[in-house]
């Protein structure tokens, strides 16, 4: 464990908490893509199957369980409890366009052709694009509430910090995991445009509004 990975995990946790608190306090999930949240639930479920087979550390187990539990909680809040506030008219990204290609890629490019390994690889590929429905929703409505922006920013920081973690591990531990690194790079790049808007607008107290 290094500082980049710890901070990355914590900003990931922060993002999830921000989202859950926003939905709970405002009793509304307006502006949030349920499609992205479903994809994240799929990501954690398929990646953390190793909870059943491998023990790494108490920290690792605890965080995995938290990520799985909170992702299902978010999906439940959006599709059941606060269903009436869900923005389904704008949340129209077709998730099969992400699930099918990432499944295919996982079958083609993986470390080992076993069920658990292919599901892990699929989860890495899917996570790299899982935020697209959310970014699509923001671009469709042309704006995001600042709380939604903070959520996206924390999530983007998590990916950025993981990149630093991999650089660190490459030099310090001679460790690298190419599938995760390439997918992580793609994922971080997807946030760049948003980062720019966040820093130039939201941090100056303005609402995140896309140029017309």
């Amino acid at each position: 464990m290094n500082i980049f990975r710890l901070l990355g995990d914590l900003s990931h946790l922060l993002a999830i908490i921000i989202l859950l608190l926003k939905i709970w306090k405002t009793r509304s999930c307006a502006g949030i893509s349920g499609k992205s949240q479903i994809l994240f639930a799929i990501v954690y479920t398929t990646r953390y199957l190793d909870l059943l087979t491998t023990y790494i550390s108490a920290y690792n187990t605890f965080m995995k369980i938290i990520f799985i539990a909170t992702s299902y909680t978010t999906v439940f809040l959006m599709y059941v409890k606060f269903k009436a506030t869900y923005d389904h008219n704008h949340d129209t990204f077709r998730i099969e366009f992400l699930i099918l290609p990432t499944s295919l890629l996982a079958l083609l490019i993986n470390h080992e052709f076993t069920i658990i390994e292919i599901l892990w690889t699929f989860s890495i590929y899917l996570e790299s694009v899982a935020i697209l429905p959310q970014l699509f929703l923001v671009s469709k409505t042309g704006e995001a509430e600042s709380i939604t922006s903070h959520y996206l920013f924390a999530l983007g920081c998590y990916r950025g910090l993981y990149l630093l973690n991999w650089v660190y591990r490459y030099y310090a531990e001679n460790y690298y995991e190419l599938i995760a690194i390439v997918a992580g790079l793609v994922q971080t790049i997807l946030y760049c445009d948003f980062f720019y808007l966040y820093i130039t607008k939201v941090l100056k107290g303005k609402k995140l509004q896309l140029p017309a």
Partner: peptide
């Protein structure tokens, strides 16, 4: 070196 299959990251 500690490469695959040791997956300790989240």
């Amino acid at each position: 070196h500690p490469h695959y299959p040791f997956k300790d990251e989240l």
